[in-house]
Design a protein around this nucleic acid. Structure first.
Lengths: 351, 351
DNA sequence: CTGAAAGCGCTAACAC
DNA sequence: GTGTTAGCGCTTTCAG
């Protein structure tokens, strides 16, 4: 069943069928009806491969994330997917497992897929190869939109967060709760959220004249295992911190794992503030103060940016003169984990 | 840059280029080299839309899940996606938001996408329309593989769980811990996991001569909100249960929400056993006993089944004579939430 | 082993 | 308003 069969059945030419299919004007209402009847009747659906080939473009986009199972990215996918449906796009899903090589393999294989656009959370900010591949997409008029992480010198559109401000607020909150010995478990310096949140951390300390202690700034790489190890190191210091700022949700989990293992309690032995909420903790004894942000909406916004870029692709409209980088605001949700009994003991000792 | 450009550059015909591209024999090693050089040099990648059109088939499959953000489905996606990469397929991702209408809309739009196959967790078991649409895929030689939930009278290949056995073990574990007043928060009867887990629940009660109390069997529909309400009702009964079996991860969360709200403690006031593990709880005070299963592997297995079905599609090999339904084994992970102090008080009172 | 050419199903000039 | 027809880029007989 193809367009010719429909044409024959309706006693018109393929061109007319095509016009009806694509909602062109210049079709008599009567013949349009006739054609539509046949289409409905025969349950005809146009072959998209043929459409893609003929038009030189598809209605497909791809989303590439570093970790499919991380709830943060699941939320991104959710928002993006919902908005993609609105615009009529289908979404290819890929996971890179935080591996730059895998990322590049995917990008290379995708070259062939006639993608209309690409949304991606890159593994690292510093991969020249990734940048090159992404630029190739752009040149092939498949716009690229980044989420959360950046590509250095890439000038890509993107949806990011006010990472430094979020981190600043988190750390300031700890300081106001009386802490001075505050650690951060950092994400990699080759990612925007990694260094920006560290920047926010330092800014907060600086504001309150607290010196940055390098021992208090280990890397957790946004991974649970590495954050667990980082936490272990922190607590083994001669002078361990009284509070820890966890740079993302996985970091927080690694941190909690250590606490559970050592039977340390938030509020009694230590304070924790996290970046990105962990829904499941809500119903437990862990009342975590976190930096929250509208993650679902970040996915939606990314799709909207992409759609705009696709529209502007051909014509050099004024709109297309700008690199569009949107920064979502964060919000500190205070649930109490910034306080700690031990602190007051400490200060009593010091007096 | 297309196959003609490559042909010209290499001084051969397009047919030869195509042969090289598709690893056909019958190409002199020398000319193959020549062509490959040009391909590498020019960074040529074949246009997949043209391939799809010419071959009448693509390397795309689709995964349709009811809830993108549910970690269970994220794990499925993860496994499926990894295995799809191995086989060279790209995965379209769709979420139905547990809405049969949306499910059907997606299925209808997908008709056009030249999918090689389809993996899906259907919203409901009883939708005739969904069954019809899925059968249409099969007829168009795009095999269908189901995961977790079923389609009544569909005879589709699928990867399911030993739901009743899992539930049986969970409930038996509660009974052995001394409980007699055991509730279940059920999933919908129009889904296999819903009724099978209920069956397992009843089987366990029956084995120990405990009558099924209908008041103890409310529906939570596998949703957090509805499970919260169900839990509230349960605990408002004149004679509330001492233990609750939660039919899935979302059910458990709804249940925990109620407990937290009322300041009820597992182990002191009530016992809970869940179906499907919730990773984030591991580091909290909630040491939940759960029925666990290898979810990632279910995704992998689904992809393998699909690949087999795609291979068998054309030829009526012996293999294609069978409907393949694989049932993953469950495993009870005991962490202590099946016990409850109150129980002993209760029995003391009764003495 | 290689090339010429038909065709996959659709779109979009270009005629009428 | 409608029809004719030339591609889109690739695969695959069929000849040689």
């Amino acid at each position: 069943m193809n367009i010719y069969d429909v044409a024959k059945e309706a006693n018109v030419s393929v061109a007319t069928v095509s016009r009806v299919l694509n909602n062109h004007k210049n079709v008599k209402e009567e013949t349009r009806k006739k054609v539509l009847d046949v289409i409905k009747g025969k349950n005809f659906v146009p072959n998209s491969a043929a459409q893609n080939l003929s038009l030189g473009e598809s209605k497909n986009i791809a989303l590439i994330v570093p970790d499919i199972e991380n709830p943060f990215f699941a939320k991104i996918l959710h928002g993006l997917s919902d908005q993609a449906t609105v615009f009529g796009y289908n979404v290819f899903m890929f996971g890179t497992a935080e591996d730059p090589v895998r990322e590049q393999l995917i990008l290379e294989s995708l070259k062939s897929e006639l993608l209309r656009g690409l949304v991606m959370i890159p593994v690292s900010e510093d991969s020249e190869k990734t940048k090159l591949l992404l630029n190739r997409f752009r040149e092939d008029s498949a716009p690229v939109v980044l989420i959360d992480r950046d590509v250095r010198g890439g000038d890509f559109d993107g949806v990011f967060s006010q990472d430094d401000e979020g981190a600043f607020n988190a750390v300031e909150c700890l300081i106001k709760a009386g802490h001075r010995k505050i650690a951060i478990i950092r994400g990699s310096d080759t990612s925007r959220p990694g260094y920006e949140r560290y920047r926010g951390y330092k800014k907060a300390l600086s504001k309150y004249d607290i010196a940055v202690n390098k021992e208090y700034c280990p890397y957790g790489e946004f991974m649970e295992d590495k954050s667990y190890i980082a936490m272990k190191k922190l607590m083994s210091l001669d002078n361990p911190p009284t509070a820890v700022f966890c740079s993302n949700n996985m970091t927080t989990l690694g941190c909690l794992r250590y606490l559970k293992e050592k039977n340390l309690k938030i509020g009694r032995d230590i304070s924790i503030v996290g970046f990105d909420d962990i829904k499941e903790l809500e119903y437990t004894n862990i009342n975590l103060t976190v930096v929250d942000r509208p993650v679902y909406d970040m996915g939606v916004e990314a799709m909207k940016l992409l759609e705009k870029a696709i529209e502007n692709r051909a014509g050099a409209s004024e709109d297309s003169l700008f690199v569009k980088r949107n920064f979502v605001k964060t919000k500190l949700i205070k649930r109490g984990s910034e306080f700690c009994e031990k602190l007051s003991e400490d200060s009593i000792k010091q007096e």
